[in-house]
Design a protein around this nucleic acid. Sequence first.
DNA 1: GGCAATCATGAGAACGATTCTCGTTATCAC
DNA 2: GTGATAACGAGAATCGTTCTCATGATTGCC
Lengths: 139, 139
Amino acid sequence: MEQRTLAVGLLEGVHVRPTRQRVRVLAELMGERDDVTAQELHERLRGRGERLGLATVYRTLGLLADEGVIDALSHRPGELCYRWCGEEHHHHLVCSGCHRVVELLDCELDPWLERISRAHDFVTTGHRLEVSGLCGDCR
Amino acid sequence: MEQRTLAVGLLEGVHVRPTRQRVRVLAELMGERDDVTAQELHERLRGRGERLGLATVYRTLGLLADEGVIDALSHRPGELCYRWCGEEHHHHLVCSGCHRVVELLDCELDPWLERISRAHDFVTTGHRLEVSGLCGDCR
DNA sequence: GGCAATCATGAGAACGATTCTCGTTATCAC
DNA sequence: GTGATAACGAGAATCGTTCTCATGATTGCC
């Protein structure tokens, strides 16, 4: 239950009440290697006997994404995927075959973006890079 | 009607029948400065007296995006935006305030991505960068 | 510890974007 | 032209997500 204690800490860190349901959702997400949708997460939790509503899963994931505890990715049209990530800024390399996700930690884009956006009279607030490809197993 | 002739050419170029509806949809999109949703495009065309169904707009945009004639962007959750773009690879700088889009033509990512993906045993098939910010007018 | 105020939950309805169905219409090759 | 095929339109269906509202848990205050 290591994961759960960690989840409680994260929730308290952003002043979100660590209710039973929220802890389960976050702990489950932390145990996922890849990104998942709210529905998948709900199904998985229900499958192992947890009693919690779909709306709660949506609310919790939305809340945590707002607080920056987790990331919401929109690489599949029509639905959002969620992922628990470390604190640092990074990007994702997603396999088109198996949806495996690799985190790219060393982002070298900032100087370039800074220059570009200034040229267009923009102030950059953020950027999102998603690289798709095929991993070794899927080729 | 310059735009329409151009649209016909583009449709024929990818072996898609240039029906009246498809030409109108593509010509309208080519006249848009920023990206639009299928619904907006449909409303706009209907507003000027064109008779065509919403499903046709969706079908056409989906088809053209598959063929690579137009781009589908997913920067608003829950809906897709479409945009007609030139041929060359590029990225977008989108204003969070007014949704104005600036094209960034000089992409400097390839060497870095090539190196990174090789390190993870991936073969890169594409990448998408979206930069968000605030333009001068919206600050 | 009890109690009121507040917050979170769950079930199902509602919603909005998109896709599907199917009868009708337009287009293309001959 | 004509017949085969592809595209269209209207509305129903679908799917992910959000909302509603009655119920249950938690917190601060006495």
